[in-house]
């Protein structure tokens, strides 16, 4: 790793720590990191759409035409149509001509709805309904290993769980007797589902922290003291310790501010 790359890695480490500082309280370092994320993302998006989409999918398609003929003499002149529709979208910013943007928007929404409705219905509803009512595979009832999602038992549990959960949301009949019992099973099914989601979410959040730990340790700290690096110089540990000193100063400053505030609030009026 050369020194320039290490400086970028250090910036990543600094922004990581700045972001985590929000767990204590909102502060200027966190604000800096937050604004950088928004700004860099927006800038990156504009550039990548321009070079990755506008240039190859529009400008290069019309490149063999002439601008003074409005590219109508190009080999693929129909690409002008989406280009014009895209430009019309920008009239949204004008109070006077904003209504024009409704035309490309209407076309886009119409196409999207037309494509989405049958496919969503087929894949999110019909196929799920069919999957809930499959034959139970008694020959593979227990499946392979602990709770195999491809086993017959899983099919049976999904059927019972789906029906009981639907009954829980059926409000045209009082939830009493057997009906109430099945509805209760339904809410247990929902609770188990929410519990699984919560468990996965906890793992996800901890994963984010672990990833940052790995970055700070493996990518930053180890690089700062890696004497086997052919580009290694005293600048590596110097930058590392400068960042650490900055963090320490900030912690002391926050601690002093906290103690001062505490003394002021506990002092007799």
């Amino acid at each position: 790793m050369d020194f320039t790359t290490f400086l970028w890695t250090t910036l990543g480490a600094f922004l990581t720590l700045a972001t985590f500082s929000f767990l204590y309280k909102d502060n200027p370092f966190y604000k800096l990191a937050e604004h950088l994320v928004v700004g860099v993302s927006a800038g990156y998006f504009v550039i990548i759409v321009w070079h990755g989409t506008m240039v190859p999918n529009l400008f290069q398609k019309l490149a063999d035409g002439d601008w003074y003929l409005l590219w109508l003499n190009s080999t693929q002149p129909w690409y002008i149509v989406p280009g014009i529709l895209g430009i019309l979208m920008w009239t949204r910013f004008s109070k006077k001509y904003g209504w024009i943007s409704r035309w490309p928007m209407a076309l886009y929404i119409g196409i999207a709805a037309g494509v989405a409705v049958p496919l969503e219905m087929s894949n999110k509803v019909n196929k799920q309904l069919v999957a809930t009512m499959v034959d139970i595979d008694w020959s593979n009832f227990m499946g392979a290993g602990f709770f195999d999602p491809f086993s017959g038992m899983a099919s049976l549990l999904i059927f019972i769980g789906a029906v009981s959960a639907l009954i829980y949301f059926f409000f045209s009949k009082a939830h009493t007797g057997v009906f109430g019992g099945v509805a209760k099973l339904g809410i247990w099914t929902l609770m188990i589902g929410f519990g699984a989601s919560f468990g996965f979410t906890v793992m996800a959040r901890i994963s984010l922290f672990i990833n940052r730990l790995q970055y700070l340790d493996k990518n930053w700290r180890e690089a700062a003291f890696d004497a086997s690096n052919p580009n290694y110089s005293f600048g590596f540990p110097l930058v590392f310790w400068l960042v650490m000193a900055l963090i320490l100063v900030y912690i002391i400053w926050e601690l002093m501010a906290h103690l001062k505030h505490k003394n002021q609030t506990s002092a007799p009026q």
Binding site: N123, F150, S155, I158, G193, S197, F200, M203, A204, S207
Partner: peptide, 26 residues
Amino acid sequence: LTGVMTAQYYPYLNSGQVFGIMGGML
């Protein structure tokens, strides 16, 4: 999938629309 998303995509495994799922870091 990320851990947050995993649980909600298991129905597609059972329906055969997907043949496998990896959930989160696990």
